[in-house]
């Protein structure tokens, strides 16, 4: 913590799939966050570095990377808070790397879509007034609506790492978010969609998703709540004699 420079080590991958590590020194007085460090490197030291970034205020979800072995948003990770001058930046795990710090998120958004993450209602088209919802009803799902789809939870989840078909924390949390919304009528379709081997049943509650979530969404508790919903749905299906 004594020097004037941070030592960045960045994991690279080029067009041909060759993996290497590059080292850079970044003056401490020029940057505050890890993202600013990366931008400083790209602007001044090495123009070939590729990364994603946009809002720099932790709301767009672009700059998910692994900082010193932990999935984080680069823009909101204050470099001095890392308690070391050595900063190791790698692409987030459990995704294919396209180049350097840029990973392929298509699978993530495909999985997100599988949980039918939108309001389902019978009365489409009549938009002449709002649907009543009290603040208490809102609070039920408020926390789960804060997800920015950054993918950190997927990178942290040990199950996603070993089973690439597992829908993952973000996707399942979105299901709960819509199921808990008092304006929604489509809960049963969603439970059918995710009450599968690759849905809630695959979660073993390691809780790492909640540890790394930058928005305090707590996906792991969401999945447990969802599991109970799935259970009740299955039981009521059995009682009604409906075969799955």
């Amino acid at each position: 913590m004594s020097g004037n420079e941070y030592e960045f080590t960045i994991k690279r991958k080029d067009d041909h799939g060759k993996v290497s590590y590059s080292d850079y020194s970044v003056p401490k007085d020029r940057i505050s966050t890890v993202f600013e460090g990366l931008l400083y490197i790209k602007e001044n030291l090495d123009q070939t570095l590729s990364m994603r970034y946009s809002c720099t205020m932790e709301i767009c979800g672009s700059c998910a990377v692994e900082v010193n072995g932990k999935p984080k948003m680069a823009c909101s990770t204050i470099a001095s808070s890392l308690k070391t001058d050595k900063i190791r930046v790698e692409p987030i795990r459990h995704f294919d790397v396209i180049k350097d710090l840029v990973v392929d998120l298509d699978s993530f958004f495909d999985k997100y879509r599988k949980g039918l993450p939108y309001i389902i209602r019978e009365d489409y088209g009549d938009y002449s007034s709002e649907l009543l919802q009290t603040p208490e009803q809102f609070q039920k799902y408020e926390q789960y609506s804060m997800c920015i789809k950054c993918g950190l939870c997927m990178a942290a989840c040990p199950i996603v790492g070993t089973d690439e078909d597992y829908l993952g924390p973000a996707s399942l949390t979105a299901v709960l978010r819509y199921n808990l919304d008092s304006r929604d009528e489509g809960g049963k379709y969603r439970l059918e969609a995710i009450g599968t081997e690759e849905g809630t049943s695959r979660c073993h509650y390691a809780g790492e998703c909640s540890e790394v979530c930058p928005k305090g969404v707590d996906p792991s508790s969401a999945i447990q709540k969802l599991r109970w919903q799935v259970f009740k749905h299955e039981i009521s299906g059995l009682i009604r004699g409906r075969r799955k």
């Binding site: 938009y127 009543l132 009290t134 819509y178 929604d184």
Partner: peptide, 13 residues
């Protein structure tokens, strides 16, 4: 609102 936007509400919904 019908599509799910959580507009902030008054007590009466």
């Amino acid at each position: 609102d019908h599509w799910g936007c959580p507009w902030s509400r008054a007590e009466d919904g």
